[in-house]
Simulated scan of single mutants.
Amino acid sequence: MKEISVVQLHELHQNGADFQLIDVREPLEHDIANISYAVLIPLAEVPDRLAEIARNKQVIIHCKSGGRSGNIVRWLMAQGFDNVYSLAGGITAYAQQIDTSLTVY
């Protein structure tokens, strides 16, 4: 499984890179803390919303700590996606290392 660090994600965003960030947590989790430029597609909805996942640019999947995103990245790769990465440490790592104003839950 391919991973990207929160520092690498932050650099991509700061540099204006063309990528897609998908949050696979539940809406209640997203309400607690979120990365403003992420698209919310709860884990259970991913199979029905594949058309919303880009195939022509880097796609980074995140959850709370990396478990769910890792699982969905492996599943997406089995579906033929070769451009997907899991955010190592999830939003917890992002809140600790990049945006300390976010709530860690």
Rank of each mutant, 00 (worst) to 15 (best):
L40G: 04
L76A: 00
R68Y: 09
G89K: 08
L102T: 07
V6E: 01
H30L: 11
L76P: 04
T100H: 11
T103Q: 12
A17E: 15
L76M: 02
A78Y: 03
A33M: 08
R55D: 09
S5G: 13
F81E: 07
D18Y: 10
G70I: 04
V7Y: 12
S65Y: 02
Y85T: 03
R68H: 08
S65Q: 08
R55H: 12
T92E: 10
L40Q: 08
S86F: 14
L87H: 00
F19Q: 03
Y37I: 07
A33G: 08
A54P: 00
E3W: 05
D23T: 07
L12Y: 15
T100C: 01
Q8K: 15
D23P: 11
G90A: 08
P27C: 03
S65W: 03
E45P: 06
A95E: 09
F19Y: 15
S86W: 09
C63P: 01
Y85F: 15
Q79K: 14
E11Y: 14
T100M: 09
Y85G: 00
Q20K: 07
G67Y: 06
G16L: 11
A93L: 15
V6Y: 02
I60V: 15
L87V: 07
K57V: 07
H30S: 11
I91W: 07
N15D: 15
M77Y: 07
D23E: 04
L50F: 03
S5K: 09
A88E: 05
I53N: 03
Y37K: 11
V84R: 02
A17C: 09
K2V: 10
L9D: 03
I60G: 00
V59L: 00
I22S: 01
L50W: 05
C63V: 09
I61W: 02
Y94G: 00
I22V: 13
S69A: 04
V73M: 06
I35S: 14
A51R: 08
N15F: 12
Y105W: 11
F81Q: 05
L40C: 09
V24H: 05
L9R: 00
G89T: 09
L43S: 01
S5W: 05
R68K: 15
G70L: 02
